[in-house]
C-alpha cells in the first residue's frame, strides 16, 4: 500500500508539469487544446532519442520541451492564421504528431525510418544522474529507517526522485505565477477572457494565443520527457488520453483547493495531479478492477470532480435559505408574542 501511494506521488508530481500546461490552455487561454496527446509523446520521443544517441540528459530534456513548444505554436498558427476551429486545430496537430513521433524515434535506428518505442533501461537519465549525488547524502537511509520503525515493510528505493521533482515542479509553478502577472502574462490572460477588449488595448491576440499554446505544450513535452526517463521507455502510444488526465488534475485540484488567486490555482493543479494518481492507485487495489480499466476510472473520477462542486454549491444555497427562513419565522413569532 505504501509503495503504491509513494509511486503515485512520484508520478503525480511529474505529471503535474503536464497539468500546469493544460491549465494554461484550458483555463488561462480558454482554448480546449488536444495537441497534448501528441506533444507529450513528442517530449518523450525527443528525450529518449537524444539520450540514446548519446546526448546529455539535461540537454535532451530541454530540447524535448522546445519541440513541444514548436508543436503548440503550430496548433496556434492553425487556429489564428488559418482560422481553423480550436478543437480541430488541436486534433489535427495531435494526429500529425503521431507520425512525427515515430520519425523522431526512428532516428535511433538505421534499418527503418520509424520506430514505435525506445527502451531506456540502461541509459543515463536526469534521475540516474541526480541519484548518484543524492545517494552520497544518506538521506534515503535516514528516511527509510524512520519508516521501518513505523512498521512499513517495503521502503522506497530512493527519495531522490520525489525530492528533485518537487523542486523542479514548484520552480515551474513560481515562474508561471510570476509570468502570468507580467505585462505579457496579463495580456495572455485577457486574450482568454475578452479578446475584443485586449485588441482595443493594442495587443496582438494571435501572437499571444500562439505564445500561450507554445508554452503550454512546452511544459507538456517536458513532462513527457521526464516520464520517459522515470519509466525508462518512450512509446508512441503513451500520450493516449493525456488531455483527460491533465483536465482531471486541473478539475480535481480546483474543486478541492479553489481558484481564488493564480498562485492558489497553480498549487491546486499540482496537487490535483498527485491526488488523481493516488485515487487511481487506490482504485487499482480493488480486486475487481484491472489496469485496463484505468481510462474508465479516469473518466469516472473526472465526472465526480465535476459534479461535486455543483452539488456542494446547491447544498450550501439550500442550507442558507433554510437558515434565513428559520430566522424569519423566529422573528415573526417573537413579533406576534410582543403584540399579544
Amino acid at each position: 500500500m505504501f509503495t503504491a501511494i509513494f509511486g503515485s506521488v512520484e508520478q503525480g508530481i511529474i505529471y503535474a508539469i503536464m497539468a500546469l500546461g493544460v491549465y494554461i490552455t484550458f483555463r488561462v487561454l480558454d482554448f480546449p487544446d488536444l495537441t497534448v496527446d501528441g506533444s507529450f509523446v513528442t517530449g518523450a520521443a525527443t528525450a529518449a532519442t537524444m539520450i540514446t544517441l548519446g546526448y546529455n540528459p539535461i540537454i535532451s530534456t530541454i530540447c524535448a520541451a522546445l519541440a513541444g513548444f514548436a508543436a503548440g505554436s503550430i496548433t496556434g498558427l492553425l487556429h489564428t492564421k488559418a482560422k481553423i476551429n480550436s478543437l480541430l486545430s488541436g486534433i489535427l496537430m495531435m494526429i500529425a504528431l503521431y507520425s512525427i513521433n515515430l520519425r523522431i524515434m526512428g532516428l535511433t535506428i538505421d534499418t527503418a525510418v520509424g520506430r514505435p518505442n525506445i527502451p531506456l533501461a540502461n541509459s543515463d537519465s536526469l534521475f540516474t544522474a541526480f541519484s548518484e549525488f543524492w545517494g552520497k547524502l544518506g538521506i534515503d537511509k535516514a528516511f527509510n529507517g524512520m519508516l521501518s520503525n513505523m512498521g512499513v515493510e517495503h521502503v522506497p528505493n530512493t527519495w531522490g526522485t520525489v525530492f528533485i521533482m518537487f523542486i523542479l515542479t514548484f520552480a515551474i509553478k513560481f515562474v508561471l505565477d510570476w509570468f502570468l502577472k507580467t505585462e505579457i502574462g496579463l495580456a495572455i490572460r485577457a486574450t482568454g477572457d475578452n479578446g475584443k477588449m485586449i485588441r482595443s488595448f493594442s495587443a496582438n491576440t494571435d501572437t499571444l494565443t500562439i505564445l500561450g499554446l507554445g508554452l503550454s505544450n512546452g511544459l507538456v513535452a517536458l513532462s513527457g520527457a521526464l516520464i520517459a526517463q522515470y519509466g525508462k521507455f518512450a512509446d508512441v502510444g503513451m500520450g493516449i488520453g493525456m488531455i483527460v488526465i491533465g483536465l482531471a488534475s486541473v478539475i480535481i485540484g480546483e474543486a478541492i483547493f479553489g481558484t481564488k488567486t493564480i498562485a492558489r490555482t497553480t498549487f491546486a493543479v499540482i496537487f490535483g495531479a498527485i491526488i488523481y494518481r493516488i485515487v487511481l492507485a487506490l482504485a487499482l487495489q480493488v480486486e475487481f478492477l484491472d489496469t485496463g480499466d484505468m481510462k474508465l476510472i479516469t473518466a469516472v473520477i473526472v465526472v465526480i470532480a465535476l459534479v461535486i462542486p455543483t452539488l456542494r454549491a446547491k447544498q450550501k444555497e439550500k442550507s442558507r435559505i433554510a437558515k434565513r427562513r428559520a430566522e424569519h419565522a423566529r422573528a415573526v413569532k417573537q413579533e406576534g408574542k410582543r403584540s399579544a
Binding site: T182, E183, I184, A187, R189, A190
Partner: peptide
C-alpha cells in the same frame, strides 16, 4: 461587459490599459 476582462481584478485591467501605448514586456503589470 465588452470593455473589461471579467475574471481579472480591477488593478489588472487597469494595468492592461496602462500598457496600451508601449511595448508589453516581462515587467510586473
Amino acid at each position: 461587459m465588452a470593455g473589461t476582462a471579467p475574471t481579472m481584478t480591477i488593478e489588472e485591467n487597469l494595468a492592461i490599459a496602462y500598457s496600451r501605448n508601449q511595448k508589453r514586456t516581462l515587467r510586473i503589470g
